[in-house]
Design a protein around this nucleic acid. Structure first.
Length: 154
DNA sequence: GCCAACGTTGGC
DNA sequence: GCCAACGTTGGC
């Protein structure tokens, strides 16, 4: 089973939005970057996913969700009203994918980007790399454990 | 196919 | 709000 991390702006959709209605999956749509899309496509039902809060006051890993439905065509790309509309995408050959994700748990505390940057073992995690804009990325078992261990620290 | 211009991301 | 880094676009 693979593990992942996705970035999100908590004002748009953060871990609290998952927690508010924990039985209801949320559609992870609007990914408009090819590398990120390719990772989305690799996600399998049941995979664990870190929710990372970006572009906000408290930046860091906030919780865990799981993939409830593997990749399918992102409905937003066909909706002219959506900010994620892509006129060049067709239903026959959809360009973009979405997955559904289900709440697992909120971390006991936010694991901040700042502290993640200080952990040598995470050097090759795209998240902590300077200038990295990748919004969906795989997380190795080792990295996953390292990040979770931080939760128990003060 | 190159690459300058432009738009976006995202930390600060 | 600033701006560095990056991805995409489009002229050539």
């Amino acid at each position: 089973m693979a593990r992942w991390l996705v970035k999100t702006e908590p004002d748009e959709c953060g871990i609290d939005d998952f927690a508010r209605d924990p039985k209801n999956p949320i559609t992870w749509d609007g990914v408009r970057n090819y590398q990120a899309r390719n990772f989305l496509t690799e996600m399998a039902e049941g995979d664990d996913v870190f929710i990372y809060h970006s572009s906000c006051k408290h930046i860091g890993v906030a919780g865990v969700v799981k993939v409830a439905r593997a990749a399918y065509p992102d409905p937003a790309q066909f909706d002219p009203e959506s900010p994620y509309y892509d006129g060049k995408s067709t239903r026959e050959k959809p360009r973009w994918k979405a997955v559904d994700m289900l709440f697992q748990r909120k971390l006991e505390r936010l694991i901040t980007l700042d502290e993640l940057k200080g952990i040598a073992g995470l050097d090759d995690l795209p998240l902590v790399r300077r200038g990295s804009r990748l919004s969906v990325m795989p997380v190795s078992d080792e990295h996953w454990q390292i990040i979770l261990q931080q939760e128990k620290r003060n």
